[in-house]
Structures are given as C-alpha cells and as structure tokens.
C-alpha cells in the first residue's frame, strides 16, 4: 500500500520483534483441528437448542457489558469490562455458528443475532435486566459466571466435539469472570457504608432470579457455594432463593427490557437487510 513509508518507519529500530513488549500472542482458534461433523449419538435438536440458549445468554450479556463502555468507574475497569464483554461475544459467535451447522438451517451467526425477535430469544431474564449501578452489574456477573461455569464444566465432556471445545474455552474465561466479579463484590461489600448498602441491594435483586437459572440448568450447589463464600468474605447477607422462578426466558417469556435491547442491537442491520458488512 502507498502508506508503506509510514509503516516502514514503524518497524525501524524495533527488529527485536514483539518480545520486548511482552504482549500476548497465544490467541488460538479453539476449534482448530476439530471436526464439525455431528456424531451419530448426538440428538441434533437438543444440541442446537443448547447452543442457541447459551449463545443468546452470551450475546445479551455482551450487549449489557458494552453499555458500560465510557461509563466505567475507573479507566482500568473499562479495559477489564471490555475484555469480559469480548469473551461473551466470542462465545456467542461460536455457539451461533454451531447452531447453524446443527439445526439444518445453515444460518450464519448474524441471522440469529440480528433477524430474530425477542420472543425467539432463549436467554435468561437475568441477562437482559438493565445494568443498574456497578454493584448490581458485579452481583449479576458473579452469579451468571458461576452458573455458566458450572454448566460449561459439564459440557466440556459433551459428545459433540465442537460444543465441548467451546465449553472448554469458556471454562477458562468464566473462571476469570467469576474471580473478577467476586473480588469486586467483596470490595464493595467490605468497603464503605454506602458501597455495602448498594452491594447488598444488588445482591438481593440478583438472587431473586436464581430460581430461573436453576430451572434452566441446576447448578444450585456450585452457585450457592460460591455465593456463600463471597458473601461471607464481603460481610453481606445471602438472601433466600425464591422457591419459584420469576419467569422463564428460556421459553421466550422475557421482561420488557429485552425488546429495546434488541431494537438497538439490530437497528442498523435491519435498516439495511441487503447490505454486507
């Protein structure tokens, strides 16, 4: 390209490569070398449904995390929240792609993300709730990551090699997200009076949704163990889990918050349905 002279000067005097900058380079394709053929023993309908549910959860979560951009409480948290959002977005893309291979539609990731309505989304209600304050967002991330981690740990041995590989990658990511959120829940719970109050309120709101999560995937033991440990360290009170779910996002039964979230997410794509991006 004609701007090569600019890039040449960029390379000048830095021929010791990237090593001196210590930047990560180990980002590999998690599906490298894995066959996309669906094993005979796997029920395609069930596999597609699982991929879709997990993908919708991830996409909606990524969208909420993206909303924090330029609004985080400190610049370092901008970077952290974006990392987490990008992990969820990456999971959504892999899972939608797998869904399209398995459900017979051969749809691409964007068909699922941009051209389905709220009723067709299978994400849990907890994911679509507005961000609230940083305490609520951290409480939600903690619960969501702990729950999803438990699910991924199980799926890492799934008979479908693609889903198993996506889950294995997700286990590493969710472990980090859970850690990040847990640290913040402890800091806010054990911080000032104000942060303690807000953290308790955030936790109360989030735990009200645990019933829905456990109905979708029963990781009650793992999630409650994490919550007990974190709330104890944070000096917070873990509320009782309501016996019945507040709703069933998995059945397309959403709060009023999902439709506007999707309207924004899909606005440009739907305004130009013939376009390529």
């Amino acid at each position: 390209m004609s701007d090569d002279h600019v890039y040449m000067s960029l390379a000048e005097g830095h021929d010791d490569g990237d090593a001196r900058w210590a930047f990560g380079t180990g980002f590999e394709d998690p599906l490298h070398g894995i066959s996309t053929a669906v094993p005979d023993a796997v029920d395609r309908g069930e596999l597609a449904a699982t991929c879709l549910e997990l993908a919708d959860d991830a996409l909606v979560t990524a969208q909420r995390l993206a909303e924090w951009t330029t609004r985080a409480p400190e610049l370092e948290e901008e970077v952290a929240l974006a990392n987490i959002g990008l992990d969820f977005l990456g999971q959504a893309r892999l899972l939608y792609a797998r869904c399209g291979q398995v459900d017979g539609s051969q749809r691409g990731e964007d068909a699922y993300a941009y051209f389905r309505d709220a009723d067709d989304f299978r994400s849990v209600r907890l994911a679509e709730l507005p961000n609230g304050d940083f305490a609520f967002s951290m409480a939600r991330l903690l619960v969501f990551a702990a729950w999803r981690l438990a699910h991924f740990e199980q799926l890492a041995t799934h008979a479908d090699p693609v889903l198993a590989a996506i889950a294995a990658k997700g286990v590493k990511e969710m472990t980090y997200h859970r850690q990040y959120a847990a640290e913040w829940v402890v800091r806010l719970g054990d911080g000032t009076d104000k942060s303690h109050r807000r953290m308790q309120a955030g936790l109360d709101q989030v735990t009200a949704h645990l019933g829905e999560l456990f109905a979708a995937h029963d990781a009650r033991t793992a999630v409650l163990a994490v919550l007990r440990q974190v709330t104890e360290a944070a000096g917070l009170t873990l509320p009782d889990v309501p016996p019945t779910p507040v709703g069933h996002g998995r059945e397309g039964d959403h709060t009023a918050h999902l439709a506007p979230l999707l309207a924004e997410l899909q606005s440009v794509a739907r305004a130009h349905p013939e376009a390529t991006w």
């Binding site: 610049l75 959002g85 990008l86 893309r93 990731e109 924004e264 606005s267 130009h272």
Partner: peptide
Amino acid sequence: ITRAPSLRRKAILFAKVQDEA
C-alpha cells in the same frame, strides 16, 4: 458498539475502543 450491524464488526469495534482505553 451496541449497534454494529454484524457480530464480527461488533467484536472489532469493541476491541478497538478497548485499545483506546
């Protein structure tokens, strides 16, 4: 970022804005 018209563009833009931070 929240309105990017494909998931690939969304990821690229999200990562770019993160780089700026």
